[in-house]
Simulated assay, not measured.
Amino acid sequence: MNAVTEKKPRLTTSAMIASIAGEGQRVKAAPFGKALSELAGKSSEIVGLTADLAKYTDLHLFAQAFPERYFQMGMAEQLLMAAAGGFAKEGLVPFATTYAAFGTRRAYDFIHQVIAEENLNVKICCALPGLTTGYGPSHVATEDLAMMRGIPGMTVIDPCDALDIEQAVPQIAAFNGPVYMRLLRGNVPLVLDEYDYKFELGKAKVLRGGRDVLIISTGIMTMRALEAAASLQADSVDVSVLHVPTIKPLDEATLLAEGQRTGRLVVVAENHSTVGGLAEAVAGTFLRAGVAPRFRQISLPDKFLDAGALPTLHDRYGISTNAVVASIKEWLA
């Protein structure tokens, strides 16, 4: 053996609560916690529950403002969802928060049977959606959209940024029925205010037009799509971005109107497994309507993902801005 061992660079994993914002990017702190607290000041029916994760879902701001309406359920996600259903039966509007991996995988049957089957007015808001933590399969929720889409009557939302979250909170509170919303917490990027955007429950919005490529995106991938579109513009590739914050019910009218425009490559981009998310929902919508554009998908693979630093993982699994640009250039070649 060689007596001199070369030192390899140490791979640092991202913090569980690390922001997904890029260096120098505009952010807003705790948009969910602030929006919910503001709304609760106007509506005494709102209560907040969590499974030992108030600080890491920004619900601690609500707890400080309304301690009598805040309920800490401990590390018991099934109890969290059952209690939320009970509050809803009493006419309250419960917001239940935890991590997406725990809220969906550990509590699925309780959401399905206690909340959704009775169409109870529970708002489930789950942090660390998709690949937004580097902690590996125990915390990475790559299948949450597929699971929640499969529940009858469940509304499913994947916001892009702080503005999306701020505007979604009062709308899902006013909506009568169960809602699952992916949650970005901490210092959340602010992107959509530059596009004269307003969140509307159930509506998709064209953020920019383009003749060569249509990116249909949701969640943080809309941010990546806008960055990729700006980069591709320098190479004379004209990219349109259609943001789909509501995964279920889909805005099929807008999707079909944009998808059937001839001559464009259609790319669906999502921070979710290739199985059961937005891309398959869009493809099904196109197929049923007889719309058949050139279709590609940017998503996470159907596998258990590695642990590591988020920028490294986003490059590895194809959802970084550079990876999106590279994929589109390859498909257009």
Results as ranks from 00 to 15, higher is better:
residue 207 L to R: 07
residue 262 T to A: 14
residue 270 E to N: 04
residue 327 S to W: 01
residue 88 A to K: 06
residue 237 V to A: 11
residue 112 H to C: 12
residue 138 S to L: 10
residue 245 P to H: 07
residue 229 A to W: 05
residue 16 M to D: 01
residue 252 E to V: 01
residue 164 D to V: 03
residue 151 I to K: 01
residue 317 Y to L: 00
residue 320 S to Y: 04
residue 64 Q to K: 11
residue 304 F to G: 12
residue 173 A to V: 03
residue 256 L to A: 01
residue 195 Y to K: 08
residue 82 A to L: 07
residue 81 M to C: 06
residue 311 P to K: 06
residue 251 D to K: 03
residue 27 V to N: 00
residue 278 L to D: 08
residue 121 N to M: 02
residue 140 V to C: 07
residue 329 K to T: 06
residue 84 A to V: 07
residue 257 A to E: 09
residue 305 L to K: 03
residue 63 A to P: 01
residue 324 V to Y: 04
residue 64 Q to D: 14
residue 101 A to V: 08
residue 327 S to P: 00
residue 242 L to M: 02
residue 233 Q to P: 14
residue 87 F to N: 09
residue 281 A to Y: 10
residue 49 L to V: 06
residue 212 D to N: 15
residue 174 A to G: 07
residue 237 V to K: 07
residue 317 Y to T: 00
residue 252 E to T: 08
residue 15 A to Y: 02
residue 97 T to M: 12
residue 149 R to C: 10
residue 124 I to K: 07
residue 10 R to Y: 04
residue 61 L to G: 00
residue 312 T to D: 09
residue 123 K to W: 02
residue 187 N to T: 10
residue 122 V to W: 00
residue 20 I to H: 08
residue 4 V to P: 06
residue 160 C to Y: 10
residue 309 A to S: 13
residue 154 M to Y: 11
residue 268 V to M: 05
residue 269 A to E: 09
residue 218 T to R: 15
residue 319 I to Q: 08
residue 321 T to W: 08
residue 257 A to D: 13
